[in-house]
Design a protein around this nucleic acid. Structure first.
Lengths: 193, 193, 193, 193
DNA sequence: TCGTAACCGAGACGGTACGTCCTGTCTTGTC
DNA sequence: GACAAGACAGGACGTACCGTCTCGGTTACGA
């Protein structure tokens, strides 16, 4: 394993890749998406622009790369074998991811940018949101299996009802999303699933 | 009354103002937010860049201006003296506004941009979203007054539950928002208000 | 007699005219020709741009106006009935006009600008330089009349020989033009007229 | 030796440099200094504005660059071992340079602009005029060495007397500068050196 | 062991849009 | 009818990034 190298015939430099992703993350957190430029990332990462364009197509592409691992890691729902608790915990984690984590800031920036860029929107959906949707379904599917939810439950509508209000606050109104709020959404859902 | 004039000490040219707003609207619809430039708007509107910068601070500022009238006009909830029908109709109109109208495209672009620009986010909230929130409250307040809803109903949470799933589809997943979906949200809310 | 008025049916405002000429002069002296703008003159003079364009065609036109009186006044050669003294004194005065006076600064700016603007060059020659040339001829013509110079003396070449070195220093090399230098030119000319 | 390349870490593109200088020269000759713009030069040269600003600070800076070679080449005095002939020929060449050559047009434009711009004036003097002055001194120094001129001759005043009338005609009066005129200046100088 | 291929940094290149400044024209209402 | 005020279309300014390109240096396999 070549560990850290500065370029050779055997593949890209892992060091350069990490520097770029970290620089992009840092600059996004420090200055925001609007002030994020490929030139800035290159300078911060100590990397040439060419190296960036060799491996990524744009600053958005870099951000998508930084997101890949984090989402699966942070947003996999727990399994307490208790529907209410599973939902409550998962919603709370999603809320914290979106509002407090660096990865959440990247996510919000990408969802924002997707409003201007249909190609990004499509890519986000196929590569990221569909996987997240699959994770979000898990607690509900387990609930159906256990008989805590009726067999015919429309899981997708359930997810829209549970997570929609959360996204509304995060993306539109900017209101905080405390646990009391997410728990109330769970209550409302369970009262009329 | 000076009606249409060409700009003098007594104020700006109404003709120039309208040309700019229309040009911005058209270009957004035709090419999208990313391809929208102040230079392009100026050229399309037959107006100098200086005139644009005299009255607006950025392309975002222009778009905010195009939005002002449309929102109040398109998104005022009807009053059928029937809570279910009021909510159903209003949600449906909001859904159509967001997904089908030119003004909705402007709105989505601005919400997207607000993810990158806290100042825009703040301005959107104080100048636009709070007014819309006030309009959204009306059917529910009337329902409470009529006794169709309990006196202690938390109207804001109700709005989050009713509209959140809609925004999730529009801004994130890109799924369509048919009337069947919005009606289902109304059903779920009324089943456990 | 309308004395000072603010614009009316009785003709142009003398106050506005003076303000503009003074403002132009001051700004040229303070900031130089390059930083001189019609807008700046208007602001400094407390006059509208329209008023300037009503009476002058450009900033150059204003400067020409400021020059008109000064040149005749400052550059009329004295008559001591002594060729050497007349020439010495006149050359010295021209040198001081060009290097030390505000009007000289205007003159240098206009000669500079005339290198870029053939119309200005033509106007300078017909309206200003020809009159100055006529004044410069006077001491020599009087010298011929008195018999101090040969009858066939080429007065124009004489003027070129006497004043050319002076202009070379003022316009090109930037060297000072002390009286010793101008007197030396007179000596050289009189030694071989 | 990389000869012609397209610009990289090892230096600028010689092709871009030449294109810019030629374009500036052509445009000055065609339309004059006032109509010369950096944008116009960039467009004509097929070069981006950024490339121009990377290497030159203004259109004046470009023109200075075009002048460098031409002056030394066109204005080096000949050596016929004959003072009168050397001076006559050199003056005539300078006159033709100033009035007929493209480089002379550039020179006149720069001297004109130097009236508005002290920094340019200083740069012209240190980088160009002093070298030219050195060349202008050569015939006179050789004349002194040969004994054709007195040992104590003030060479600088001699140059002012010989060239001043020429510059007066070129820069101020616009009169032609035929060989008869320059020869007459030589005669006058040699009659009273 | 040395050539060679892939990757690296550096940075110049042609472009596009930015936001500012000034030009010269115009319109309005006052004096 | 001249004036102050100032909005207007136009266009050049100088700057910031974009995405592409070429260069010379570094690394490590394979001939």
């Amino acid at each position: 394993m070549p560990a850290l190298h500065h370029g050779n015939r055997h593949g890209r430099s892992e060091q350069a890749r990490r520097s770029v992703l970290e620089a992009a993350d840092d600059l996004l957190a420090e200055r925001g998406f609007a002030a994020l430029t490929v030139e800035g990332i290159a300078a911060r990462a100590g990397v040439s622009k060419q190296t960036i364009y060799r491996w990524w197509s744009s600053k958005v592409d870099i951000l998508l790369d930084t997101l890949a691992d984090d989402m699966a890691q942070m947003l996999t729902p727990p399994d307490y074998r208790d529907l209410r608790r599973d939902l409550s915990e998962h919603l709370h984690r999603v809320a914290r991811f979106l509002t407090e984590s660096d990865a959440g800031a990247v996510y919000r920036a990408l969802v924002g940018q997707a409003q201007h860029d249909p190609a990004l929107a499509a890519r986000l959906r196929t590569d990221y949101l569909s996987e997240q949707r699959a994770r979000d379904r898990l607690p509900l599917l387990r609930g159906i299996e256990r008989g805590d939810l009726p067999a015919g439950t429309d899981v997708d509508v359930a997810i829209d009802r549970l997570f929609g209000p959360l996204y509304l606050r995060v993306l539109v109104t900017g209101e905080p999303v405390p646990r009391a709020f997410t728990d109330r959404l769970v209550d409302a859902y369970l009262a009329a699933p």
